[in-house]
Design a protein around this nucleic acid. Structure first.
Lengths: 176, 176
DNA sequence: AAGACCATGTAACAGGTTACATGATTAT
DNA sequence: ATAATCATGTAACCTGTTACATGGTCTT
């Protein structure tokens, strides 16, 4: 594939657990060629400049070696949750709006997973299919958990907002 | 708090969605002081060198400003899933062992969330409690989804491994 | 006395994003 | 024509981890 194709393929099939930028892809492809892990050839026909890369035997051995290594869990970071942790500094209404936005995004993401499932099930005979499906399944379960949490969070913010409004109203009434 | 305390507090209360290393914490605290967002004083009594930091008015304003800004979602990266995506290159038995390891970690993490819930519920009167609880709730739902997925994955790997073994046996029988 | 933990910090490095630069081709 | 998309690449920058260095204190 070309660097461009790789980016598109990642976005299409693994977007729920992996992403890469061009700034990573192009230099890395060159490095892989330099190390003899990939080879590069110019696209045969066509007018546009296209550099097609393919894996070498050495590259595949290195891939297998890497795949066999257990993953060391890296640090987690969820900025939305960190902001919520200090949530009392803002108002509940602000959190509600933000949660609504996140919910819309989550619904869009869930729809994308649905499309991907249809696509994978149409190609169920593909020998890689079971592995692709189990990574997709992770996305589905995570997506479901995310949506449930957002609903609970929305309910909480409504509750908190009501409390805040009451306090404000009472204070106003007392003042007037 | 001191840099050391901050690290401990993060590990204890927000480990399911945030982490920091000393290499971040100490330089950033100095930078915050330089910008007038925090102030630093040496620990009053005691023999050990302790530098205590507290937020300034300016710092709190900056915190509020940051909290009000909507989060821009960064690129997702789950190395375990990426390895699974190319899972056919390895054997199903390898994935099974790895999944078992992940499951043990997930159970440990779930237990930690349970402790944290008990701690938070004991301090339910704390005005920040609702916000802390909703971030914890995220961890719980995510943890549950993770465990369910691992169970499904384990079942799949058993199935795939059975298939692989049968093919090997048949081939061996034919050869002998 | 040894080992664990408290406590602060720095330097080197790795990993990654964003913005920029360039130009061809295709669709409206 | 013009906008979108195809296609490749670089440079500057930011963020973050790991490993190292140092020394005090507490527990066994």
């Amino acid at each position: 594939m070309s660097g461009y194709d790789i980016k598109k393929a990642i976005e299409q099939s693994t977007s729920n657990f992996w992403s890469e930028s061009y700034g990573q892809i192009y230099p890395i492809l060159q490095e892989l060629v330099r190390q003899g892990l990939a080879r590069r050839r110019a696209a045969p026909a066509g007018a546009r400049e296209r550099q097609l890369y393919s894996i070498t035997g050495k590259g595949r051995r290195e891939l297998r070696r890497w795949l066999a290594q257990p993953t060391v869990p890296g640090g987690v970071r969820n900025e939305s949750l960190l902001k919520l942790f200090f949530g009392r500094e803002s108002g509940a209404a602000t959190h509600r709006r933000e949660a609504e936005r996140l919910r819309r995004d989550a619904v869009t993401a869930a729809a994308h997973l649905g499309e991907l499932r249809a696509l994978l099930e149409a190609n169920a005979s593909e020998p890689d299919a079971p592995y692709w499906l189990i990574t997709l399944r992770f996305g589905e379960l995570q997506s479901r958990a995310q949506l449930q949490w957002l609903d609970e969070a929305l309910a909480l913010f409504d509750e908190l907002d009501k409390g805040e409004r009451q306090r404000t109203t009472r204070r106003t009434r007392r003042r007037s």
